[in-house]
Design a protein around this nucleic acid. Structure first.
Lengths: 250, 250
DNA sequence: CGCTCAGTTGAAGCATTTCAATTCTTGTGG
DNA sequence: CCACAAGAATTGAAATGCTTCAACTGAGCG
């Protein structure tokens, strides 16, 4: 699937929907005007659209403004591992921009709006706007931290713990970007996506989710995920909530 | 285990052992003089020494100059996941410096020499030396890429594929920093370390290694690992060697 | 109203873990 | 130089968790 229609200029940065998120409060006017000049366009996609493909160079770097997406890698025989979900405010394509080709594919789950800017100009950002360059590294460090925890899950947590952790993780991330209302999120993915993230078979993922449900830790209400209390879920996942004290966005 | 003896000033940056590595050739004189001012000391540790601990703040940032180390996370009940091995040239503690507390522990495998500089001064690097700041992000992006591939391994490769990939990965990384001679490396870790990296039990790791050995893909000669030909090993791991074309350091 | 995709379920098979020894290596003290 | 201790590697057998196979059910949509 190639990229969609040509870029169109819609949202000017000062009116960027992300600015309402807590994470991006700290951006100064100077920084904002710099970003504005960097932005080359906006990409609006439908659901299930491939934005960047593994093994190809990425000339554009994106920030997700609206919607959900996910990153995955696959083996030749079709086995697929979802390495992370992408939420508003996340970068897409830094890895490819820095290292050459993309090492993973990025696909949308919902209709999405992405802000794009040319790979070649990242360097300007480092030269002219160190505070933003710092933020880029900050995002990379956070992503690394998320991947580390996911690695712990796949390597050492069993199916139930792993699923409990992952649902909690997604819930907290969604909460950070304002997607949670009254302890409820709409997760736009199927159990198959989840199984590919957890490294489990679809069947076992299903049974595991049912079990969490039966234990009353997570409730599914026609497409919405409701977590009455995160503490016992964290407990089940063997995940230390204290960790969020200093790293609220993990 | 606390840190060892107080810092001592030994190797001046222009004489840094890392400078002989290919990766670091590109550093200019300006950059070098800047780094020199940043360096606050050198840490020399024995083997099996904890350099940074999960859950604690890291006031120092390190670069590994000599030796091997590894990063790990653990669950309360003792299960441990090694998320990555650290080789000369790698950063230690960026994640903690950026996000607050460390989210993982770093422990040496061999006697090691680390170059240290204060966390608070990273910011200067971003302000005064954008090219180095860029390098920091480059390293972070590479690390992210490594973690992605590891995630694919734990989630979707079976024991043999996973072990084959990981040994190949370590071999290639060791090669990049000049630790390979005539297709042979000295891996300073035990099978238990490897099992904690692969997310397998020790027993099964042993049987899996034996199998790779029996298939002639890897040979173990009193502590040395000999890989006659990387192509069939990559094949067994379902790993695409082509990927190294654009990302030589993965 | 019937098609399609997502979710659900039971049963059989297999990969990996766990348990329990045993052997091999390496370093140390006599 | 040998004996011994301690850690690391190796092995077989039993137990278990997860996968695979093969249906079936339910919900959304033209």
């Amino acid at each position: 699937m190639p990229l969609e229609s040509p870029f169109s200029y819609e949202v000017p940065c000062p009116a960027c929907p992300l600015r309402t998120c807590q994470v991006f409060q700290a951006i100064s006017d100077d920084e904002l005007s710099f970003i504005s000049k960097l932005k080359t366009g906006e990409l609006r996609t439908g659901p299930a659209t491939t934005v960047l493909r593994e093994g190809t160079p990425s000339d554009q770097l994106f920030t997700l403004l609206e919607g959900w997406a996910f990153r995955y890698k696959s083996l030749d025989d079709g086995r697929r591992q979802i390495t992370s979900f992408v939420l508003p405010g996340d970068f897409i394509g830094i890895q490819g921009s820095m290292l050459g080709d993309m090492d993973h594919t990025v696909e949308t789950l919902t209709p999405a709006v992405l802000c794009s800017f040319p790979r070649k100009r990242i360097w300007e950002l480092y030269k002219n706007c160190p505070s933003l360059a710092f933020d880029v590294t900050w995002l990379a460090a956070r992503q690394e931290s998320i991947l580390n925890e996911h690695l712990l899950s796949l390597g050492r947590r069993n199916a139930v713990e792993c699923a409990a952790y992952y649902i909690l993780h997604l819930y907290l991330r969604a909460d950070d970007v304002g997607l949670v209302t009254e302890s409820r999120v709409r997760f736009p993915f199927t159990q198959e996506h989840l199984s590919d993230a957890l490294g489990l078979s679809l069947v076992h993922t299903n049974k595991t989710l049912k079990r969490l449900s039966a234990e009353g830790l997570v409730k599914w209400e026609h497409g919405w995920c409701f977590i009455p209390d995160i503490a016992p879920l964290a407990e089940r996942a063997k995940f230390d909530l204290q960790m969020l004290r200093t790293r609220p966005l993990l």
